[in-house]
Design a protein around this nucleic acid. Structure first.
Length: 220
DNA sequence: CCATTAATTGTCG
DNA sequence: CGACAATTAATGG
C-alpha cells in the first residue's frame, strides 16, 4: 500500500484527470527502479512512455565518433518517449539514470489507447509538448553556433535571464555541461579559464559569478 | 585510508 | 578545437 507512489497522480501529465481515469491508467503502468548508470531507454527497446517518479534521467545521442551529446535531463514529473509512441523513432537516442531512479512505464499500445479514449489527456500532452519544444529549440540554437565560447556564453546568459541573477549555479557536472554544449571537458575548462582571465566571470567550482553581462553579450 | 571518478593542464595533430 | 596522457582534486566506501 505505502508502496503506491502513484506517479500517475503526481505527474503533471496525468494529474488533472479524474480519479476514474487515473486508476485506469495506474493499472496499465509498470513501475521500475533503475540504479545509477542504468539505461532506461535505448533505441532498440520497446516503445514506451517513461515517466520519472523519483530521481532523474539524462537523454543523449551518440555522435558518429562515439562521443555523447547530452540533450536534456528529465527530472521528477517529466516524461520521455512520447514521440516513439507517435511512431517517430530515433535510432540514436538513449536515456540513462543519473542516480537511483524510479520510473513508470507505459507500453506503446496502452498509451495509444489512452489517447484515443481520453481527449483531455491528448490535449494535455499537446500542451506539455509545446513546452518541451521550446527547450529543444533552445538546444538547437547551440548547435547552430560555431564557436564553443558562444555556446557557453549563451548558456550562461540564459540562466542569468531565467534566474534574474548574476549568480549562476551550474546544475550538473562539468563533464556533462561539456557534453551538453557539444564539446569536451578539456575545452570547457579552458574556456572557463579564459572567461575568468578576461574578468568577465568569476568561478568557484560550480558557482559562477557573472561580472560583466554586457561584455558577454558582445560575444554573441 | 584506498579506489574511483571528475577536473585540470600540457602537448600534439 | 579535439584526442590523448599525465597530474591533481574531489568523492565515496
Amino acid at each position: 500500500m505505502s508502496q503506491e507512489h502513484l506517479c500517475v497522480a503526481s505527474v503533471p501529465l496525468f494529474a488533472h484527470l479524474d480519479i476514474e481515469e487515473q486508476r485506469n491508467i495506474n493499472q496499465l503502468v509498470t513501475h521500475q527502479v533503475f540504479e545509477k548508470g542504468k539505461q532506461i531507454m535505448t533505441p532498440d527497446g520497446d516503445p514506451q512512455l517513461v515517466v520519472i517518479a523519483h530521481g532523474s534521467m539524462k537523454m543523449y545521442q551518440l555522435s558518429a565518433s562515439g562521443r555523447e551529446q547530452l540533450l536534456r535531463v528529465v527530472g521528477p514529473g517529466g516524461y520521455e518517449g512520447e514521440n516513439l509512441l507517435l511512431d517517430a523513432r530515433n535510432e540514436n537516442l538513449f536515456g540513462e539514470a543519473l542516480e537511483k531512479t524510479e520510473a513508470c512505464l507505459l507500453a506503446y499500445e496502452d498509451f495509444q489507447q489512452l489517447l484515443l479514449t481520453s481527449p483531455p489527456l491528448s490535449l494535455k500532452l499537446l500542451k506539455m509538448n509545446a513546452g518541451k519544444m521550446m527547450q529543444i529549440e533552445r538546444q538547437t540554437q547551440f548547435l547552430t553556433m560555431e564557436k564553443v565560447e558562444e555556446r557557453l556564453v549563451t548558456y550562461l546568459l540564459n540562466i542569468c535571464k531565467a534566474t534574474e541573477s548574476t549568480q549562476v549555479d551550474i546544475p550538473m557536472k562539468m563533464k556533462e555541461l561539456a557534453s551538453f554544449l557539444g564539446t569536451t571537458p578539456e575545452t570547457l575548462s579552458r574556456k572557463w579559464k579564459w572567461l575568468e582571465h578576461e574578468e568577465l566571470i568569476q568561478r568557484k567550482g560550480n558557482k559562477i559569478n557573472v561580472l560583466d553581462k554586457e561584455a558577454l553579450e558582445g560575444y554573441l
